[in-house]
Each structure stands twice: as C-alpha cells, then as structure tokens.
C-alpha cells in the first residue's frame, strides 16, 4: 500500500497507456481456458493412473467356490485365534488341510499346490484391506460384539470369483481400497473406503463419538 504521489495515480482505471501491442483479450482468455481444461484432464484422468501401480496376486482365488463349500461363512477360513486376535488371511497350513494335492482343474490351484504347498512357502497375498502398522483394528469388537457383517467393510469379496488387480499407491504404499476407487473420495457403499474418516463416520453414527486415539491407533 503505497501512498507515494506517483504520476500513474492520476490516470483513471483502464486508461493505462498501452505502450506495447500485446495479444488481444480473447486470446488470453482462450489460453486460460485451455490451461484450465488441460490440468483438469490431467488431474482427474491421468493422475490417478500415475498414482497407483498395478500388481497381480501370486495366483487367482475364487472366494465363491470356497464359500459354497464351508459351513460357517468367512470365519471358516478367516479365523479368530484363541486369544481373541484375528488371524487375517489364512495360513498355508490352513489351506493345505484340503489342498495337499491338486483337486480340481484350475491352473491357479496347480500353482498353489506345486509352488507353495510343496515348498511349504506362505503365499505372499496382496491384501486389499491392509491397514498401516499404526492402526489397531479389533475384528472381535466389530464382528463378535457389534455383530457387524464382514461385507459392511469388505464388500462382496466373499462372492467374487476371481481376485481383482491390486493397486498400490506409489507414495504411501497403501492399497487403493483404503482411499477408495473414486479418486475424489466419493463413497456409495460402506465398503468403498477404509480411511480413518470412514471409521470415524461410522463410529460417530453408532457410538456417538470417534473414540479416543488409542481405540484405533497403536
């Protein structure tokens, strides 16, 4: 904010002397719009592709077939340990109970039996819903106590016939399912995202508050 009595002060707005001939206003507006449109396209369409790397699972897995074969749903394989903690993805030993030898005709099963069961090597599954190390999540509290269904957070993966491509955020290392598939973070279903805000929203609705830090962080 200058108060100097500069000679330009005496000129009325718009009357500034056009010492050089520049591009006409229209061109400038056009360039502005082009810039705007290009960056919009980049931000919405290209950026998400760049942000995530695609990784394939070691081999495909059909949840549906397994669901039809077991008695107690997801918990048949995704078990709680005796101490109440949740074991997550089944271990090789669990799978090998049935798949000691190749049973069906699927190529994937063959891979599993020949490469993993035979060599006693745990399958390096890429876990879509893997939370970062700083998160403590109690499946017991949600599934056993609050009697929530797996689907509510995990969607209908239990009915899927094959595994989708695993997308990993190149910066954070998170699975894309944490942020959600929609780059803008818009959710249609309860399982469309697994960020802290998603947890918080549900907790606020059902528990009245997000709860203390340690409830979900370790």
């Amino acid at each position: 904010m200058s108060t100097s009595n500069h000679e330009a002060d005496s000129l009325a707005p718009g009357e500034a002397p056009d010492r050089k001939q520049g591009a006409p206003g229209g061109v400038i507006v056009l360039f502005f719009i082009v810039g705007f449109a290009l960056s919009m396209a980049f931000g919405w369409l290209v950026f998400p592709k760049l942000l995530y790397s695609e990784k394939n699972q070691p081999f495909d897995f059909n949840h549906k077939i397994h669901m039809d074969l077991v008695d107690s749903g997801c918990e048949s394989c995704h078990v709680f340990r005796e101490d109440g903690t949740y074991a997550g993805v089944p271990t090789l030993a669990q799978c090998a109970d049935c798949h000691q030898d190749v049973q069906g005709e699927s190529k994937d099963e063959e891979v599993f039996v020949n490469e993993y069961v035979a060599n006693e090597k745990e399958v390096p599954w890429l876990i879509y819903s893997r939370q970062p190390d700083c998160v403590f999540f109690s499946h017991a509290a949600h599934v056993k106590m609050a009697e929530m269904e797996c689907k509510e957070c995990h969607g209908d993966i239990g009915e899927s016939e094959s595994l989708k491509v695993y997308r990993e955020n190149r910066i954070t290392g998170y699975s894309q399912d944490i942020w959600g598939e929609n780059i803008a973070g818009i959710r249609k279903n309860t399982w469309d995202g697994m960020k802290m805000t998603d947890c918080g929203k549900c907790h606020e609705e059902r528990m009245g508050s997000k709860g203390p830090c340690f409830q979900c962080h370790k």
């Binding site: 101490d83 109440g84 903690t85 109690s138 017991a140």
Partner: peptide
C-alpha cells in the same frame, strides 16, 4: 500408554468370550 495395547488385547479376548 499404560500399555493400552494390553487392554485392547484383553478386551478382544473378552469380546470373543462374550464379555465386556
């Protein structure tokens, strides 16, 4: 943290056993 994770683990066990 007063070993809060131990509280969490104890609670998990309690939940599975149907206790609060």
């Amino acid at each position: 943290s007063f070993c809060f994770h131990r509280y969490q683990l104890a609670m998990e066990k309690a939940y599975v056993e149907g206790r609060r």
